[in-house]
Design a protein around this nucleic acid. Structure first.
Length: 119
DNA sequence: TTGTTGACTCCCG
DNA sequence: CCGGGAGCCAACA
């Protein structure tokens, strides 16, 4: 598997490597992924990396892009409501519950990246 | 090299 | 809770 600390890799490859470690039933935030990669300020770049994956919708990769949500516990859809619906559907199928406002309980489902806690 | 962009986040009303 | 503004930084034209 890819090493997210390998700076020779393209940024989005490192993002994917980290996201792949999130198990079903758990979620993570853009800021958390950025933190693992070096800085919580990389949140926007994490979003950019996932946007480049969107056209495939995971068809050609095993990246669980739907498990990445924003720091408020809600889904970012960049104007594409259809994709947001699919994301929520996938998460609920894995056991991640959303309230009526479209937000999930980060306290319960947020992934702590135990594999990279030393970073 | 410079300027723009944006699946973000934090802070203030 | 909702909206606006500032800061952030890799990719791209």
């Amino acid at each position: 598997m890819l090493d997210p600390t390998d700076r020779t890799l393209k940024f989005h490859d490192r993002v994917f490597a980290v996201v792949r470690t999130v198990p079903a039933g758990s979620v993570t935030t853009y800021g958390d992924v950025g933190s693992v990669l070096g800085s919580p300020r990389l949140a926007r770049q994490v979003g950019w990396a996932l946007a480049s994956l969107a056209p495939d919708l995971g068809a050609t990769s095993d990246v669980p892009w739907h498990r990445v949500i924003n720091a408020r516990g809600s889904i970012s859809h960049r104007g594409d409501i259809v994709r947001a619906e699919e994301q929520r559907q996938r998460l609920e199928a894995e056991g991640v519950l959303f309230d009526g406002n479209g937000t999930c309980d980060l306290q319960t489902h947020r992934w702590g990246f135990p594999d990279y806690k030393s970073l």
